[in-house]
Design a protein around this nucleic acid. Structure first.
Lengths: 218, 218
DNA sequence: TGTAATGTTTACCAGTCGGTCAAATTATCC
DNA sequence: GGATAATTTGACCGACTGGTAAACATTACA
């Protein structure tokens, strides 16, 4: 008799690895576009190229598939923030964070949209992750930023809103891609838009928009 | 015999006004949370406090309801950008735009999420609006910003990405509200977070993060 | 007040949804 | 190569989906 996936305590077979991989890949395609409610198992099955009952052999419910996907993607997604380093130079750390986040928006737009969809719809499946691991990580980095401000290495500002603004500006290019392309039109909607965005955001976050002499504080 | 709404050529009755209002209000509630695919007519009917066939008497399809809602909300939604004025002082115009967008995120979060859901899912129902009216409006304002830069009233920067960054940072507080609350925790998730955000964003967009002497250009 | 137009509801439909089951097929390992 | 476990499938289920038909109720207006 078949042993449903959830009951496995032994190590996984090669087929299990491969099929679960295949399913989660397809699930990312579908969930990232339509959100949890708007996606159907049939859609995912079709994208994955297997039958619906076969999907349900590996993940017993739609919920379980979503859960597994979130778990898998969340760790990677927070990598750039984790790399944010207190020892480094504030300006280059912030620059680097923006650049890495922008690269993720360019290279992993589906992952970005998966979370965007989820959070937008009230985060019913990831509330715990937001209030737990995410909050703790942000709290830690907020302390770093606050210390920089206190030491005069950076202007005094609210570290939480600083992080929010980096998240929003960078993820915008993944989540609102259609809008960005529509507004930029044929001319600038090629891959060059990420270069332009990077240039603009670095300028914004470092210097702001005011015209003023670049003169280091005494 | 009843005349379905779509066929009306005469002016609307009082009941039509009221019921359509009631329905669109409920539809905004539902669509803004679950997106088009994820929402059901039954949900909307329940929120509106009327029977499903009664909804369908006023809007013949789910699609028509969504369309009517988008049309109604889009105009208002672009108001702040339309108010952006070439004659004004660049710094205060930008400040004002940020403030107005932030007020909209605070006062009309459902409208923000409605669009966010739609764009996130590939904008299948509003592609024309994005490529038409929206693009034209942004093009116009981009020219204004570029003129400011050329006149030295503002730093040289890509006007499109400037507008994107204002959109994303402000709308973030509506679209990702759950995340913002989760990260800020009990302490700062009250209404005060909008004040904090406004303060931070004005600082960011005007001065950036670098520590440097505030010295107007000669 | 009567009546025609407008508005509302109950019952219903065909298609889709998430998920089950048992039978059939394939891989594994002695 | 055969027994056993793992994998895959087609048929199916009840609940829900968007939408319809027609009877019933209410309103507007002469």
């Amino acid at each position: 008799m078949a042993i449903p996936r959830a009951a496995r305590t032994q190590r996984r077979t090669r087929i299990q690895e491969e099929k679960e991989e295949q399913i989660l890949e397809a699930a990312l395609d579908v969930f990232s576009v339509s959100g949890f409610r708007g996606s159907t198992i049939d859609q995912i099955a079709e994208v994955a190229g297997m039958s619906k009952p076969n999907l349900l052999y590996y993940f017993r419910t739609k919920e379980a598939m979503h859960r597994a996907l979130i778990d898998r993607v969340l760790f990677t997604w927070l990598e750039p923030l984790r790399a944010f380093n207190a020892e480094g130079n504030p300006e280059s750390e912030i620059r680097g964070y923006i650049r890495r986040k922008l690269e993720m928006a360019r290279d992993f737009p589906r992952e970005s949209r998966l979370f965007a969809n989820e959070v937008l719809q009230g985060a019913p499946h990831i509330e715990d992750e937001l209030k737990g691991p995410l909050k703790e990580l942000v709290d830690e980095k907020a302390r770093v930023i606050r210390a920089w401000a206190k030491a005069g290495k950076i202007v005094k500002c609210d570290p939480y809103h600083l992080i929010f603004s980096i998240w929003s500006t960078t993820q915008h290019y993944a989540d609102f891609d259609v809008q960005v392309r529509a507004v930029l039109g044929q001319g600038h909607s090629g891959e060059g838009r990420f270069e332009d965005a990077a240039r603009f955001l670095e300028q914004l976050f470092v210097d702001g928009l005011s015209v003023r002499a670049k003169q280091p504080v005494s």
